[in-house]
Amino acid sequence: MNQPQAVQRADASSNTDLPQLYRMMRRIRTFEERVGELFVRGQSAGSMLHLSIGEESAAAGVCAAMREGDTFTTHHRGHGIFLARGADPNRMMAEIGGKEAGYCHGKGGSMHIADMGLGHLGANAIVGGGIPAVVGAGLAARHKKSGAISAAFFGDGATGQGILYESMNMAALWSLPCLFVCINNQYGMGTRIDQATANPRLHERAQAFGLTAETVDGLDVEAVAEAGRRLVDGVRAGKPAFLVIDCYRFYGHARKDKSPYRDPVEEEVGRAKDPVAFARAALIDRKLLAETALDTMDAEVAAEMDATIDFTVAQHEPPLSSMFRDVYAPEEPEPEPVRTRIDRILARA
């Protein structure tokens, strides 16, 4: 059982620690690029890989305000969030490669990655599917007086799902420590937000349910981090909140999608809103880090993420016999394999 935490452990400077935020965003971007490479090399398990390039500030900024013991769920585009909550990129990449050494032993993959130790209650391949879990986790936090918050990360596409509104209503009604984070990358698959809703000012919906809500420009990771800190403090005090981070999905919906449905001019403008480049320029402008120091940092990150590919390629697939494991608890009998069953029946005849 989680013990109540009397003192907030996150370092007070984290929201304004631009070098750290930059480093995390760079790690996320480079990891995502390596995911793309894993696919090109034929080492990913499938092509259902949804990259968060262009959205790094949401993960880095909001997660900087969270602390140990907090729980969260993510959507199908959640690699960055998990990294920002402390995931081991090797085990992540191995999971994306469907390998035994991955976080879920190759059964989950990119869209169903989870780690209870880091409070990751699960990525989700159902749009909006992970949202109500944070209401339950919020109830548990209140019941156990753990002081934890629970955050649901999802995209603008999930604002079309009724479960979001049911969940926000419950969180507000019961004053639960829940944070709803809407990463508005402008597209639900191939449908732009203004083609999916008459009112794209998404935070207004949360306000209608009585949540504290705001929209922040994802170009500026410091602004995201400050908004995150502000809202998380309220959430921890039982005031659920909703944060929209405006950004742009640089590439297609999934690895194979070249987004032919998007206007090239729009893409150019969208990709110019690059939170990683923006933070890098700010670090140099404000003389927080020299360009050479940033180059060194980028090289370290590249080496770290290159290693995830080598690690993954070297790992083995899960044994076929693990297929029947973990349908039920380990103390329960495993389901009878179809072949065993057929042989047993025909042996009698």
Binding site: P132, V135, A137, I163, S167, M170
Partner: peptide, 20 residues
């Protein structure tokens, strides 16, 4: 709860994951 069956079951899932 409100009349929100999906969120009732979803909240129970989250509560179970978080130790209730």
């Amino acid at each position: 709860t409100p009349i929100s069956e999906p969120a009732i079951v979803g909240a129970a899932v989250g509560a179970a994951l978080a130790g209730l």
